[in-house]
Every structure is written in structure tokens, then in C-alpha cells.
């Protein structure tokens, strides 16, 4: 398992290539990456991501540990950035490896659902005309219930 919290960009291709590459018993690898998207009405100049140094790493490791335990994963990777990002930049990625695809997909979705609502990150959108904190959605909280 690897959990990385960093300000710098990461190389999605290289990370995906290297992930679980030493394992010959894992038949399924799922990767997901989240990307900063433009605002619907306004132009997004930047997405500012604040986090809670100290708690972030521990919270992400606990979430990844839980995914590994529940889906018997061969490996899991979480990379999450903080700081000031522009549209099109990758914010984060997860990767999961399991013998079969169902477990790899489910574990990746579990990781994403928990990262969204239980990892101490907060996003602020800086548009051309306005700036504001992204509000948590009820549906994101509700998504945890299925696990």
C-alpha cells in the first residue's frame, strides 16, 4: 500500500504502469484519476485545495487499509494533491489490484466515496468573478451508506 499527499503534480501514466507490476497473481487493476474541471457559468482560474497536515496521511491510510482488508486487495495506491491547481490538472488518483475485476472496481469506488467525505481536504474555487468553498453534497454522504 502506498499513500502520498503532496503539492507537486504526479505522473499518472508512470504510477499506473508501476502499480502492482511485480504481482503475477493480480488479474485486475483499476485506476481512477480526478481532474480539476471548469465551472459551469464562470471561468475557473484555480482550485485551491486545503488539507489538515498530520491528519490527512493517517485518514487516507486508514481508508486504504479498510479497502485492502474488505476486498483482499493485492495492493492499493492513493495519491492526493493540495495547493493551487488549474483546470485540467489531476487532483488525485487511486489504484487497486485484485485477482478479479469486481473486487478491484468495488474497492476503487469505496476508496473514492470515502476520500470524498472522510479525508480532511477542502476545495475553494477561484472564478474570474467570484470565489467560494465547494459545499459537500448530501449525495456524497449518502454514498457511504452502501458500504
Amino acid at each position: 500500500m502506498r499513500v502520498v499527499v503532496q503539492e507537486a503534480p504526479f505522473d499518472f501514466g508512470a504510477e499506473a504502469e508501476a502499480f502492482a507490476s511485480a504481482r503475477t497473481d493480480m488479474g485486475a487493476v483499476v485506476t481512477f484519476t480526478g481532474v480539476v474541471r471548469d465551472l459551469a457559468g464562470d471561468r475557473l482560474d484555480a482550485m485551491e485545495i486545503e488539507h489538515y497536515p498530520g491528519m490527512t496521511q493517517k485518514a487516507l491510510e486508514a481508508i486504504a487499509d479498510e479497502a485492502i482488508r474488505r476486498w483482499s486487495l493485492g495492493d492499493a495506491l492513493v495519491i492526493h494533491r493540495f495547493g493551487r491547481l488549474t483546470p485540467g490538472e489531476r487532483i488525485m488518483m487511486v489504484a487497486t489490484a485484485a485477482p478479479h475485476r469486481k473486487d478491484a472496481f468495488e474497492a476503487a469506488e469505496f476508496l473514492m466515496d470515502y476520500l470524498k467525505s472522510r479525508a480532511p481536504f477542502w476545495k475553494k474555487e477561484h472564478g474570474t468573478d467570484s470565489a467560494g468553498w465547494v459545499a459537500a453534497k448530501d449525495e456524497d454522504e449518502a454514498a457511504l451508506d452502501r458500504w
Binding site: 480526478g34 489538515y52 487532483i91 470524498k116 472522510r118 479525508a119 480532511p120 481536504f121 477542502w122 459537500a136
Partner: peptide
């Protein structure tokens, strides 16, 4: 620590 609901991912 006090904060609003988290918005990771």
C-alpha cells in the same frame, strides 16, 4: 480541529 464537511477526491 473545527472544519466544514470535507470535500476530498
Amino acid at each position: 480541529a473545527f472544519f466544514p464537511p470535507m470535500t476530498g477526491g
